[in-house]
Amino acid sequence: MTSEVAVIAGAGSGLSASLAKLLTREGFRVVLAARDIVKLSPLIAETGAEAIAADVSDPASVDNLFSAVDKVGPLSLAVFNASSRVRGSIADLDPESVKKALLVGAFGGFLVGQQAACRMLARGSGSILFTGATGSVKGFASSAGFAMPKFGLRGLAQSMARELAPKNIHVAHFVIDGGIASADPGRTSTADSPDRWLSPDAIAEAYLAVHRQHRSAWTSELELRPWVENF
């Protein structure tokens, strides 16, 4: 068991919940960050995690979040799982909505990554993990509002990995290439398509495995997809 401290920015159901539960079972002290922490009440009750209301696109809010994390203990793992999806043809996209998506998905990743890096540099170790998507590597039609922040987040992760790896800080980007299973209608596996959706628990296991990798064989980017997904 461990007494490591982890923060999950952009926490909610699905992957974030699976990760919080796994880390708690493994002995981590977990801090969950979200705009609306009321929705996290069941997860908090189950895991004992601390929840902090935070807007990842706001520097002051992110600073307050990490000040709260400092009170829990030295940070060893930071997961950025926040995003804002905007769909529509390029002619019809609302500029303000696209701006928000960029601020949350790319600028937010920078703010969280910066705060985490500062603490891990002082400590001399740690992992910073960024959640990407198919849109991180492919810009589909009518998805510019999603591809732009995801491409930006991937570039951030690559740059940080090259800068921080020599300083014993592991930075990795995850391409979640497919839909994640949930309780929502149409998001559950069926007998005739058991592998249609990625299991959030399985993804969480991959995140923890990357965090625990030996430094001589660090992963900088990991693609996760069900075999039925086209790529």
Rank of each mutant, 00 (worst) to 15 (best):
M1G: 13
T2D: 07
V5G: 03
V5T: 08
V7E: 13
A9Q: 06
G10W: 06
G12D: 00
G14I: 11
L15H: 06
A17T: 04
S18P: 09
L22F: 00
R25I: 08
R25M: 01
R25W: 04
R25G: 01
V31Q: 02
V31N: 04
V31G: 02
A34M: 00
A34V: 10
R35K: 05
D36Q: 09
V38D: 08
K39A: 12
S41F: 12
P42N: 12
A45H: 14
A45V: 15
G48I: 15
E50G: 15
A53V: 09
D55S: 13
S57L: 02
D58E: 13
V62K: 02
D63V: 11
D63S: 15
N64P: 14
N64C: 15
N64Y: 15
L65P: 06
S67K: 07
S67P: 03
S67I: 06
A68V: 09
A68S: 15
V69S: 13
D70Q: 08
D70W: 06
G73L: 02
P74C: 05
L75W: 09
S76A: 12
S76Y: 11
L77C: 07
N81P: 00
N81L: 02
S84R: 11
S84W: 15
R87I: 04
S89K: 09
S89Y: 04
S89V: 00
L93E: 05
P95Y: 12
P95S: 10
E96V: 13
V98F: 01
K100G: 03
K100H: 12
K100M: 08
A101Y: 02
G105R: 05
G108P: 06
G109Q: 06
L111D: 09
V112S: 03
G113T: 03
Q114I: 01
Q114H: 08
A116S: 06
A117R: 04
L121T: 13
A122S: 13
A122G: 08
A122I: 06
G124I: 04
G124A: 04
S125C: 07
S125G: 09
S127G: 08
T131E: 07
G132S: 07
S136W: 08
S136R: 00
S136A: 04
K138H: 13
G139L: 02
S142G: 12
S142Y: 13
S143E: 05
A147V: 07
A147D: 14
P149K: 12
P149C: 10
L153A: 05
L153F: 04
Q158A: 03
R162H: 13
L164Y: 12
L164N: 04
A165Y: 10
A165G: 11
P166R: 07
P166V: 15
K167G: 08
H170M: 07
H173G: 01
F174E: 09
V175F: 03
S182V: 13
S182Y: 08
D184A: 10
D184H: 00
D184I: 11
P185L: 11
S189D: 15
S189C: 11
S189K: 10
A191D: 03
A191Y: 10
S193Y: 14
D195K: 02
L198Y: 07
D201S: 04
I203W: 01
A204E: 07
A206N: 14
L208V: 01
A209H: 13
V210A: 09
H211D: 06
R212M: 01
R212P: 10
S216N: 07
T219V: 11
T219M: 14
L224R: 04
L224P: 03
R225Q: 10
R225W: 03
W227F: 12
W227S: 12
N230Y: 09
N230M: 14
F231C: 11
